[in-house]
Design a protein around this nucleic acid. Structure first.
Lengths: 346, 346
DNA sequence: CTGAAAGCGCTTACAG
DNA sequence: CTGAAAGCGCTTACAG
């Protein structure tokens, strides 16, 4: 067991003022550099700060200034390969802007009324970054009514709320992915693993899938439509269901990269080869895409950049009261080998 | 562009006091439930709180109580598959304990003196969770001298500092992993990809590797010793270097699971089959282990549990001034197929 | 069980 | 350019 000593006495702005022979107002001014201060006063103050190893107390600062300089990030759960780059982007921006980052990952909370308002809000942050569907429309409205800065990431604002949002181009990219399978590889029976039901990315990827089929006059076959949930485990089971039902397909659009990993595993257990027997495509181009059993054909999504940008918009909204209505990040088809391309190439 | 309305006026403890017809002291007491309050006063206060949708201002609370109820987590960088479960554990514990979680991921900062002390410390948190080598010994000492609560995760305390730490059993597990390759599969030339130089896990995994070789009278061959850095990219290059130099080996201990992914890729490019030509083992048992081209034989490390436990120790240290000196989590060999076991089995 | 009052460590008009 | 003073919204001895 460790028994910790008494706490060391921190120095305050008053100690600095005394040491430098000025008032605390002046110390505050040199710290914040928002008002002109004579060079040699500043010099003396800095020396005192250095000497006493002074770091301003954030709670006092926040209380007095009515600004927290904290942004909150709230997301449904921390997992998969998608989350780290997003957080990296958010964190980098926060640091650059001098904001602290408070993070909450919340398990599903069905039926509870506004479960989050006590965790993250005007009482402890200046604004909130909200990832996908973690907050219900009612909860978003709660913040919105108060004029509390919120930026949505991977989600568009609900009807009637003008909230800035950062999203991706999903539909077109999904369409070209499916186009590629049909046109370059002659696929006609492309299974689709749908993502989470409420998820917007999921919705648009499906729209792209449907539209590609339609443009090529391939009727939608509901047998080929399965639940994937953007999750390797679920995808694994979904493919097993398809195979157990004896459904035939020549390709699978897994919905995202994580799901593709589960797809590979299930196919292998049934001794189906990729891409010879079944072609597989994902979405996101996370770091596992090139590492999968067959390098994955997928769509590149600039996840870290989007995280950064969302934080940027939030800081703008906090500081200036304005932000861009919607930022849509472009995505890009990445052809590797799981679709059947480059069979013998590098 | 979005232009946000004026901010909504938040209610304070004074509004509640007025509404409930009591003093602010009483409101504070029912909120904190640390002092007896008569049932019907409490009732009235709660009603007022409900009605005015009151949430106490954390900055004021922190300033007045001299407790932040925030723990800080500081780590070198956010990436790989290791990070999400760790953060999930930390976050879950923080939430359960009513602590906010502040997170800093810092790029390498060589040569700067105490670069972190302004980011995370007594001025904005109650204590710090420090992951691996992100803080230098000097920086740790800086916090230590002040009696600031710090718990180390994946790292033992430096000489002379009694800091609680949460670590894993690496050495024995690595040894059994290598034992298995030698005894069950007759390997004699086992390449080793070392992790980051300063990393403690890396150090002990190497110790286990060496000791297994020694116990089987296999001389250590430095040709088989490469830099891996716990990273798929680096591992990929390392394996290429080995092969380009024409060095022969019958197995690779990749150092961790991420590295194994890079190893698979490099071997495939050289048309070497796993496990027929080369057996591969990893460490950590992250979620990609079963998803790799050949399900990975590795060592299970309870990452999320350790994150949770580290946060738990930190909260203890903050609240009671005491914590366990060191918590060592057991690890466990997980045999899959990349070592050559279960060739035709499930 | 309850209230009045001091105090936490800053910021920021207001004077000068 | 600088200082004195009020105030941010809570907590917590101190009395009663």
């Amino acid at each position: 067991m460790i028994d910790q000593e008494k706490k060391h006495q921190r120095s305050t702005i008053m100690d600095i003022a005394r040491e430098a022979g000025v008032s605390i107002s002046t110390v505050s001014r040199v710290l914040n550099a928002n008002v002109p201060v004579s060079a040699d006063t500043a010099e003396r103050v800095w020396r005192a700060i250095e000497q006493l190893d002074f770091i301003p107390n954030s709670a006092a600062k926040r209380l007095a200034s009515q600004r927290a300089n904290i942004i909150g990030l709230i997301l449904p759960e921390i997992g998969g390969v998608f989350f780290p780059p997003m957080l990296r982007g958010v964190e980098r921006c926060a640091r650059e802007q001098g904001f602290d980052l408070l993070i909450y990952s919340s398990p599903p909370t069905e039926g509870i009324d506004h479960p989050h308002k006590k965790l993250l809000g005007e009482h402890n942050t200046d604004g909130l970054l909200v990832f996908t569907t973690i907050l219900s429309e009612r909860e978003l409205a709660w913040y919105y009514r108060r004029g509390f800065p919120v930026v949505l990431l991977h989600r568009s604002p609900p009807q009637g709320m003008e909230m800035p949002s950062v999203v991706f181009e999903n539909r077109q990219a999904a369409e070209s992915l499916i186009d590629h399978l049909i046109e370059a590889h002659g696929c006609r029976r492309i299974a689709f693993l749908r993502g989470p039901v409420e998820n917007e990315d999921s919705y648009w990827r499906e729209a792209g899938y449907r539209s590609a089929l339609e443009r090529h006059s391939i009727p939608l076959d509901l047998d080929l439509y399965e639940r994937g949930n953007f999750d390797a485990q679920m995808a694994f089971q979904a493919v097993h269901r398809l195979l157990d039902k004896g459904i035939h397909f020549d390709a699978i659009f897994a919905g995202d990269d994580d799901s593709s990993a589960g797809v590979f595993l299930a196919l292998k257990q049934h001794s189906l080869r990729v891409p010879e027997d079944v072609r597989v495509v994902g979405f996101d181009d996370t770091y596992i895409a090139p590492l999968l059993p067959v390098p994955l054909t997928t769509v590149h999504v600039p996840i870290e950049e989007a995280g950064y940008e969302a934080a940027r918009q939030l800081v703008n909204l906090i500081k200036t009261g304005t932000a861009q209505q919607q930022v849509v990040f472009p995505t890009q088809l990445v052809i590797r080998r799981s679709c059947g391309c480059c069979q013998k190439g590098s």
